[in-house]
Design a protein around this nucleic acid. Structure first.
Length: 327
DNA sequence: CGGGTTTGACCCGCGC
DNA sequence: GCGCGGGTCAAACCCG
């Protein structure tokens, strides 16, 4: 239920770079001068420190902006969901959808498309139907939209080192790769994953480097997990694609920037956001990114930080998870 | 030995 | 009808 997670403003964990924005109450306990005054002795403040401080300031502001944007997106999502609930209330008894045939009992033989477009309908979830309705109201034949409606689709844009050839996107779930293909419009191969945490989980994931910017890996999720988030493994490797073969112990390039973009909410503006927020200058952008990556590396190497993060995350998710599986 | 990855073959929808 | 291309399968392989 990724969009749900993404849509919970209160899931913001207060992991911020730079001075803590006013949104975060827990972090607000700590004075924002932690870095400025405690970390560095006053007498060593020079032009570099001043530059860094201003940099931090800017980062803080940008973080605040992003938080606001996220809140706005979450509000939009809630609004759409509410509207869909209304629509469903008006349109009830239409679907039928024969109950809880959860596993779908896919026949072992290759019956691909006969089951593909329609029999996955029981897994079709409300959010995506809302998208369908908003786009099909014109009544025109919407073949492509129907395709997209087969399963709920969302995209995750992740920064990754171009030298890292593994198409691993850390999203907290366990994935099993079942195929790889070179597509026509992109020289980079596309990898196909299935959720391996629950055998009956219908979720699939496609991971491919962006053709335009090979530092960006685009993960496309189809469907929703019919199980909870798997607990992270003890070694802290965040339990993704549990075996990552012959992958050098590269730094966690993918951790710093995750932009989860539900497809049906994609606006051109958000596309920009998904790539990387365009800020004042490219140079400062680079500085910021490097700084963020370094911090991420430092933090993720700290076992106690990992433990604390895991505790916070799981507690938060449990605390906030809706009572119904899918509302 | 079990589970995951690799990779060539196959299936099927779609455009021409 | 045919070819192309995306998605999936499954045997072989790899690794702990």
């Amino acid at each position: 239920m990724d969009p749900w997670i993404g849509s919970q403003p209160s899931l913001i964990l207060g992991l911020r770079v730079g001075p803590s924005p006013p949104v975060v109450d827990a972090m607000a306990k700590h004075p924002k001068t932690l870095v400025e005054e405690n970390f560095l002795p006053l007498n060593k403040k020079g032009p570099e420190v001043a530059a860094l401080e201003s940099e931090l300031q800017r980062m803080g502001e940008e973080n605040r902006r992003l938080s606001e944007a996220l809140t706005a997106v979450a509000a939009k999502y809630e609004e759409l969901r509410g509207r869909y609930a209304e629509m469903v209330a008006n349109n009830t008894n239409g679907g039928g959808s024969g109950g809880t045939s959860e596993d779908g009992s896919v026949s072992p033989s290759r019956k691909r498309k006969s089951e593909g477009s329609l029999e996955t309908a029981p897994h079709v979830h409300h959010h995506q139907l809302a998208a369908e309705q908003t786009e099909c109201t014109s009544g025109e034949p919407c073949k492509r939209i129907r395709e997209e409606c087969k399963a709920k689709v969302s995209r995750l844009h992740v920064h990754a080192d171009p030298s890292d050839l593994s198409l691993v996107v850390k999203d907290g779930y366990q994935w099993r790769k079942y195929g790889q293909k070179v597509t026509k419009d992109n020289p980079c191969p596309r990898a196909y994953f299935r959720c391996s945490f629950a055998p009956a989980c219908p979720v699939k994931k496609k991971v491919q480097r962006s053709a335009e910017d090979n530092t960006v890996v685009v993960a496309t999720y189809e469907g929703e997990h019919n199980h909870g988030q798997p607990p992270p493994p003890h070694d802290g490797s965040s339990g993704v694609s549990s075996k990552t073969p012959a992958k050098p112990p590269s730094p966690p390039q993918q951790a710093p920037h995750h932009h989860h973009v539900p497809v049906q909410q994609q606006h051109p503006k958000e596309e920009v956001l998904a790539g990387e927020p365009v800020a004042a200058g490219a140079a400062s952008e680079l500085v910021r990114r490097n700084l963020a990556e370094q911090m991420a590396v430092t933090l993720t190497r700290d076992p106690s930080f990992k433990a604390a993060l895991v505790t916070a995350l799981s507690g938060r998710i449990l605390e906030l998870s809706p009572t119904t599986k899918d509302s």
